[in-house]
């Protein structure tokens, strides 16, 4: 086996490196900067150049990070390694590993829907495909994001009419910037002022510095005391819900942007006014069509609905296996321990 699961993570023995390890290792190849994939403490990291700013923010100034362009080939102990766009967030990559004529691809997290904040997903042909399965059930079928953003604008303007602030809870890295991009008007502005939580603001700056067009934002905590947020839109990480940080916004209307909002129970549990179904992962049809497009004879299924996806594939004659990992899906991980810095 070219790759195998060990206590520290997914390991390539031939090249002596790990992919998204969950414990410190010598050499880690990183699919993307989310906390469950890019963990602190490894000696050397290899990641995409598109995502180098956000990864730097996540791993700190001292981390040793080597960047490669998408498609560029690197030799690691005789193993050919290359990174290919995964369309999940800025800089997210699939890792292609080739050795002795055998090709493996590790998807990391990915989506095939359009997203102006990152390079679109590219199908990479392989023999073995290691795929995520965060939304691997047929109940997950995404509506076009243009509809979602139209609803979001409508909700924002209704709140603005009532002079209320609109708070969108979105994961600080990726989702927050995708929401911002979705609210960007043709003239480069937005419907009204947009404020951010510190965790979001910092990564949003990284996105802008990486050349992504986003509407102007203000860091909410830098506003003077008593500032009127009525009618504005606020983007905050889910962990800010219920915190005292929210007090400044008064009687605001909260919403949550996530693929999980597809389910009514999940929407109600969040106790928000709106749940916008906006996911950075593939839905069921896209998951299946991607697996097919890779031409893989063997599929390993990681974090998410592993068992159903494996069974579905097995019933269709594809050699599939469920792989236990410590990747949890960023949207389920909200505790600071998982790498989310909670800075107002």
């Amino acid at each position: 086996m070219l790759l195998r699961i060990t206590d520290r993570g997914l390991y390539c023995e031939a090249g002596d490196f790990y992919i998204d390890p969950w414990q410190p290792v010598d050499r880690a190849v990183i699919t993307h900067a989310h906390g469950d994939h890019a963990r602190w403490g490894s000696r050397h990291y290899l990641a995409s150049s598109e995502g180098r700013r956000v990864l730097r923010t996540r791993l700190g100034a001292d981390a040793s990070i080597q960047s490669v362009d998408y498609g560029e080939r690197i030799d690691m102990g005789g193993v050919r390694v290359s990174l290919h766009p995964a369309g999940h967030i800025l800089g997210s990559a699939q890792i292609r590993v080739e050795h002795g004529g055998e090709v493996w691809v590790v998807s990391g997290d990915y989506k095939t829907d359009p997203d102006p904040t990152c390079t679109p997903f590219e199908v990479v042909r392989c023999h073995t495909f290691i795929t995520e399965s965060t939304f691997g059930l047929p109940i997950y079928r995404w509506q076009p994001q243009s509809e979602v953003f139209a609803e979001m604008r409508e909700w924002w303007s209704a709140n603005a009419k009532a002079e209320r602030a609109s708070i969108v809870y979105a994961y600080a890295l990726g989702k927050a910037q995708r929401v911002l991009a979705g609210l960007l008007d043709a003239d480069g502005g937005a419907m009204g002022p947009i404020y951010t939580h510190g965790a979001v603001e910092r990564l949003t700056r990284d996105y802008r510095d990486s050349g992504i067009a986003l509407p102007h934002t203000h860091h909410a905590s830098e506003m003077p005391r008593g500032h009127d947020f009525g009618g504005s839109l606020v983007i905050a990480p889910p962990s800010a819900a219920g915190s005292t940080w929210l007090r400044r916004f008064g009687a605001a209307s909260p919403a949550f942007a996530s693929g999980w909002m597809q389910i009514r129970g999940a929407r109600r549990r969040r106790a928000v006014d709106r749940g916008f179904v906006l996911s950075d992962h593939v839905d069921w049809p896209a998951l299946l069509s991607t697996i097919e497009a890779t031409g893989a004879e063997r599929v390993w299924v990681t974090h998410g609905f592993r068992e159903p996806v494996v069974r579905w594939l097995l019933e269709r004659g594809i050699d599939a296996l469920s792989i236990a990992s410590h990747w949890e899906g960023e949207e389920e991980v909200e505790s600071p321990a998982a790498g989310e810095e909670i800075v107002a």
Binding site: L137, P138, I139, R141, Q262, I263, R264, G265, F305, E307, P308, R311, W312, E315
Partner: peptide, 23 residues
């Protein structure tokens, strides 16, 4: 879809009417 997959979906949604309307 096969029955087992329907059951998995129901398990995730927790509501039969909703599961059906999503599928």
């Amino acid at each position: 879809i096969p029955e087992w997959l329907f059951d998995e979906c129901y398990d995730a949604v927790g509501d039969l009417a909703e599961t059906i309307s999503l599928l």
